[in-house]
Write a protein that binds this DNA or RNA. Structure first.
Lengths: 162, 162
DNA sequence: CAAAATTAAATTGCGCGCAATATGATTTTG
DNA sequence: CAAAATCATATTGCGCGCAATTTAATTTTG
């Protein structure tokens, strides 16, 4: 469909790559927002935001984690997680408690309401699956490719050091 | 350490889809953040944020657009764009001026600095291309699939009405 | 033509996301 | 063991992103 052959295959830099990186970053940017907007009306009745829902998802996989452990999975630091978790606690989905063995750490634990949400989420997940309009195979491929790219991007992020 | 395999692969709902939707939304979420983090050190020297850079990208494609037209392309409303464009103006990349023919509209125009940035961006784009570690074909496929999914998600967003 | 409806931007309020910093708790080491 | 270094979390400040409201200009209509 896309017939962009005006910019010649000149000099050193492959033009195709140049145009594509813009399209890719915009595609990821747009897809993230589109997903967010699709989830919003489904999550609103539960008083949850999309990031809060994602945090719950990781707790469904493994409950009773520290803020740091959650942050490692989500790629977020305490600057983002502390207030987010405080809101999740205020709305009754989790509890936060200092680890008795190491008072520096805070253990995040699902409440009954938080576990119940996992069951309610089934309907939400079906909706999202439908909304993407993708086949199972397409979803798998897309997820796999995104994960691979993300991994390469993260590995390239030099956590610098002096 | 704590293995949680209680919830079985039971009943009516295809478990594959359920697990995948979670993985997909998380994959998109993570990819967006990873891209953001990859761009950040490349954009910092220019005093640009990632969303500002994306806004510039759309202006490179077509200059002199209204805020509304930009918003339609970016999927953003004036609540996000107004302050963002004000900052782009403050840092000298664009100018904003009321349309003489229709004073409601604001025309956004690249400055020389804004156009020059497109040339400087070549280096940035090469870096991103490398960082994704994808082949051209992989980038094309990923972009295409994301765009397709986004389109379906957006079409499902009922812009409601009474 | 004037009132009502519509439109485009801007503003306000709230929740991320991240850098930088602050506060305590634990570990290192001298 | 006490001072220093390290570590986990919380706080602050700024820029998105979005809903809701406001302001001003244009169009519709009665």
């Amino acid at each position: 469909m896309i017939e962009k052959r005006d910019e010649a295959e000149t000099d050193t830099i492959p033009e195709g790559v140049l145009a594509l990186d813009q399209q890719l970053c915009f595609a990821v940017y747009s897809a993230a927002h589109a997903l967010n907007r699709t989830y919003k009306p489904l999550l609103d009745p539960y008083g949850l935001t999309y990031p809060q829902y994602i945090a719950l998802m990781t707790l469904w996989q493994q409950d009773g984690r520290t803020v740091k452990a959650l942050g490692a999975t989500l790629g977020l630091d305490s600057g983002t997680l502390s207030p987010l978790l405080k809101r999740l606690e205020a709305s009754g989905y989790i509890t936060r408690a200092r680890d008795k063995a190491d008072e520096r750490q805070v253990l995040v634990t699902l409440t009954e309401k938080g576990r119940a949400m996992q069951r309610d989420a089934v309907a939400i997940r079906m909706e999202i699956g439908k909304a993407t309009g993708c086949t199972l195979e397409a979803l798998q491929a897309l997820t796999r490719d995104l994960q691979a790219m993300t991994e390469r991007l993260e590995s390239g992020v030099h956590h610098d050091a002096a």
